[in-house]
C-alpha cells in the first residue's frame, strides 16, 4: 500500500528522481526544498516517512531531524537521510539526532526502494 512520504532536498534533480521513483512505486510524495520548508509541510499532516538530504541551506538535515523528533506526531516515524559513502561522521551525527537509516548516494531506484522498505511496510 502506498505511503505518504516527504522528500527534503535542495537539489531539484534529486527531488525529482526520488519522487518519480517513489510515485511509480505507488507512494504519495511531497517535496520540500530545505529543513524550514519541510517543517511547514509536516505541520498538521501525517507522513509515514521522511527522506532528507543532509547538506542544505537554511535548515540542514541534522537540524531538521532533531526538530522533527521533538514533534509528538513524528516521534516514531522513520526518517531516512541521503548521504555519500565518504561521510561517516555525518552518518553518526544524523543517527544520534534521531534518524532511522540512510540512503547512500548515488543510488539506483531499486536501492532507494530497498532502503525505504527497510523502514516502512
Amino acid at each position: 500500500m502506498g505511503k505518504k512520504i516527504l522528500i527534503v532536498d535542495d537539489s531539484e534533480s534529486i527531488r525529482e528522481v526520488v519522487s518519480f521513483t517513489l510515485e511509480n512505486a505507488g507512494h504519495e510524495v511531497q517535496k520540500a526544498i530545505d529543513g524550514d520548508d519541510a517543517l511547514k509541510y509536516l505541520d498538521g499532516a501525517a507522513y509515514d516517512l521522511i527522506i532528507t538530504d543532509l547538506h542544505m541551506p537554511n535548515k540542514n538535515g541534522i537540524e531538521l531531524i532533531r526538530e522533527v523528533r521533538k514533534l509528538d506526531t513524528y516521534k516514531f516515524i522513520p526518517i531516512l537521510f541521503l548521504t555519500t559513502e565518504s561521510q561517516t561522521t555525518k552518518k553518526k551525527e544524523a543517527k544520534e539526532a534521531g534518524a532511522t537509516g540512510w540512503i547512500v548516494k548515488p543510488f539506483v531506484p531499486e536501492k532507494l526502494l530497498a532502503a525505504i522498505n527497510k523502514v516502512v511496510r
Partner: peptide, 23 residues
C-alpha cells in the same frame, strides 16, 4: 561551507545521472 555544499551536491547528482567523470 557553501563551496563544500555545492561540490557535494554536484558529486551526488553527477553520480546519479551518469556523469562519471564529474563524480
Amino acid at each position: 561551507e557553501s563551496i563544500f555544499r555545492v561540490m557535494h551536491s554536484l558529486k551526488g547528482g553527477s553520480a546519479m545521472f551518469g556523469f562519471e567523470k564529474i563524480d
